[in-house]
Design a protein around this nucleic acid. Structure first.
Lengths: 196, 196
DNA sequence: TTGACTAGAACGAACGTTCGATCTAGAGTT
DNA sequence: AACTCTAGATCGAACGTTCGTTCTAGTCAA
């Protein structure tokens, strides 16, 4: 309450910490970021960080879980709004491209950091729920005859592999044009790879 | 001279250090591996390590350069032995799969570690020479009419993206069968994505 | 007064690196 | 053959720094 420096709403401090941490982790990596860095960047004391999170790894884990959950819920929306594998998978790639352009840190943390080095007990991203939902879309497409019958893993990697590598290329600064301008070309190639 | 316990040939110690380092870096990551770990694992003293390499980063850099050079020379051989984009690109995927199965540490260090976190001045892998040669194969294929005319980056990521993600899936333990058993399925899909 | 929260100084462990000592192999000299 | 010299390789204890974490003191709202 009171005046100039307004009081924090609950959850505010956590959000500040997580936001600063995301930017530091993607900018310089988990191991090049110290807890002292996080405290400085988020304008919060070390004590607060350790009050809200068990340890440094706990901050990373919270970040990771937030990300997985958000992605899962976005994919659930896609599943609800589209019925064919064609439309669903296109929507997935579109979503990934939009996130890459609008919130590059999130995409970088999701696709481009080696979680297993700092979250030793976490399964690899590719076996996380969002990736499983994406494979489910592909499986449905094979069942309905939209997608050629083949190994599910082969179909999934061929269908999404190009787009995902395009995203990492974009994050590496290898693309001349904005990522989203490539989406139709990518989609035509990727869909042709697996369509019946 | 020399008999039972043979004396070291020059370069032997460096090779010992590099081999132990590769296995440690891929097993637990650069930042989870201390120079003391490297000394213990390679059965060489810390002093020797610093005699042969400028610092810890220098060891990583030597490893990285070895890898890039070896890959470049393998790709040059492929270029010499095959004439069509079709044959060259298939040979590239075959090569990548073989390395993944026979020397997984090398592939893991090449494709799966975040070099930029510990080699800050290195360009991303995807702009390294081997990847450029791969794109050159694709460009040649577009010029000769084997591959549809489109953005080079789009064609390259679509042609190799599936295989590369299959490799990372394999390293994540997501595949039921050995990686090489998928090669023909992958190739059919990937080639169909870009072929005229 | 209580309990949730914040602050930042302090701590011990682990890290990357340095350094002087020691060892080895070979060249040069007699 | 015997000895000396030298260059480079090897060694590991020791150093200073940085890190993640803990701790005590304090603030503020209810």
């Amino acid at each position: 309450m009171s005046h100039v420096t307004s009081k924090k709403t609950p959850g505010d401090t956590q959000a500040q910490i997580l936001s600063a941490t995301l930017s530091l982790f993607t900018g310089q990596g988990y191991f090049n970021t110290s807890v002292h860095d996080i405290a400085r960047e988020s304008e919060v004391s070390i004590g607060s960080i350790y009050h809200h999170f068990k340890d440094k790894e706990g901050v990373a884990r919270a970040l990771y879980n937030d990300m997985i959950n958000r992605m899962s819920s976005e994919l659930a929306t896609i599943k609800k709004n589209h019925n064919t594998a064609h439309d669903r998978c296109y929507a997935v790639i579109e979503l990934l491209f939009i996130i890459t352009e609008q919130e590059p840190d999130i995409m970088e943390f999701m696709l481009y950091s080696k979680h297993r080095e700092f979250l030793p007990n976490e399964r690899p991203v590719c076996s996380s729920q969002p990736f499983e939902i994406m494979r489910e879309f592909v499986q449905d497409g094979m069942n309905s005859g939209e997608i050629q019958d083949m190994d599910l893993m082969v179909a999934s990697t061929c269908l999404f592999g190009g787009a995902i590598r395009m995203i990492t290329s974009s994050m590496d600064g290898l693309l001349k044009k904005p990522l989203s301008s490539y989406i139709d070309d990518i989609w035509i190639c990727s869909w042709r790879a697996v369509a019946t």
